[in-house]
Design a protein around this nucleic acid. Structure first.
Lengths: 206, 206
DNA sequence: CCTACCGATCGGTAGG
DNA sequence: CCTACCGATCGGTAGG
């Protein structure tokens, strides 16, 4: 069963690396939409206009595709959080910047953020991808340090359980991944503002 | 009460219903752990000590097992939120009670809460299970009404985007599903207290 | 509840 | 990148 689309795409002249990159972006979208394990190589092939078996001309395994997407995203993410967390600003300012950075990322790299946030169970059980869960642990530590600083300096309340508070903040950011749409009725700036305001000030008027 | 529902459903097979119920609870655990689609009928059969094919002596389809677990959980959940939301208490009190109820549920029915929270994508795309997503929409509306009441009566800040605030609160509760463990280092009371305190008062000291 | 299967789909491969 | 497959696993079934 020859496909017109597939034929048309094949006849166009493209460099190997360009095609490879195209397929990778298609995989990225599908992994984000359906989750890594639920997205099949046949779906990726269909979307790319080739047979699933032909994907293995470009990539050795499905895991390789995921790794090639996730690794160059996760490590800079972790480093960026470190940079913000260790700046000279005071704790509330650093926390604000981290929330802002995390949510801005949601606009710039929504797919990759969805993958690392939603497929945590898969990463955790896979030896090869243990670095993803480790990065999450490191990111937790970084946030925790900022919260501690704020409490020490009297800028954050000292009567809150910081571990639970941290979990709440992270869940808040990761949860946003599943409902925020850049073309929806809210801008990311509105979301950042609301999350910062609620986290810092709470619901009760001052 | 769930007992009455169960009795009505299988009144003609009372003696065999014990085994049926056992299998259902095994399925519940696996659905919660791995997600509905990732949990295979062979795993359920193995855990129950029978062959996967033999499950179909008790249930017509895998979907039937899920429906039998989820339906009697979701509808009372929605109703309970309605009862709390329409009580005579003021808005902050009702919100507090709803958070408390939601988190207490996490201790009493962790598996079912995980299923309805984590498999939302599956429920949304399935016609048969549309009632789950509809229940979520209803629950959103109920929470939203309480937030609106609080703003109207000057007990909640009026400068927050309520839609975003609502999303945050729901994500917060649903996110708790994935990290809270009853045998962990925090009690559910600590989690309730911290979440209520942070949501109402914020991080900044008064 | 078991035996003995079914067609569909999964990730992946040999050879061109 | 295609053809033509592979073994494993999926949800489910007929007959006892």
């Amino acid at each position: 069963m020859p496909k017109e689309v597939a034929t048309a795409e094949r006849s166009s002249t493209r460099r190997k690396s360009g095609r490879r990159e195209e397929i990778l972006q298609i995989a990225r979208t599908l992994f984000a939409e359906k989750g890594f394990e639920s997205a099949s190589i046949r779906e990726i092939g269909d979307a790319a206009g080739i047979l699933s078996g032909s994907l293995y001309y470009h990539f050795a395994t499905k895991d390789d595709m995921l790794d090639e997407l996730v690794r160059p995203f996760v490590l800079p993410l972790l480093k960026q959080y470190e940079v913000i967390a260790h700046s000279d600003a005071d704790a509330p300012d650093r926390l604000r910047q981290m929330i802002q950075f995390g949510l801005q990322n949601l606009v710039q790299e929504p797919d990759l953020l969805k993958i690392v946030a939603n497929d945590r169970k898969f990463f955790a059980k896979s030896e090869r991808f243990s670095y993803v869960e480790e990065a999450w642990q490191d990111i937790f530590q970084i946030w925790y340090g900022v919260l501690q600083d704020g409490v020490r300096q009297g800028q954050f309340r000292s009567d809150l359980n910081l571990h639970i508070t941290l979990r709440m903040i992270i869940e808040l950011l990761n949860g946003t991944v599943d409902w925020f749409r850049p073309d929806g009725r809210f801008t990311i700036e509105q979301v950042i503002d609301t999350q910062v305001e609620l986290l810092f000030g709470g619901l009760t008027p001052r």
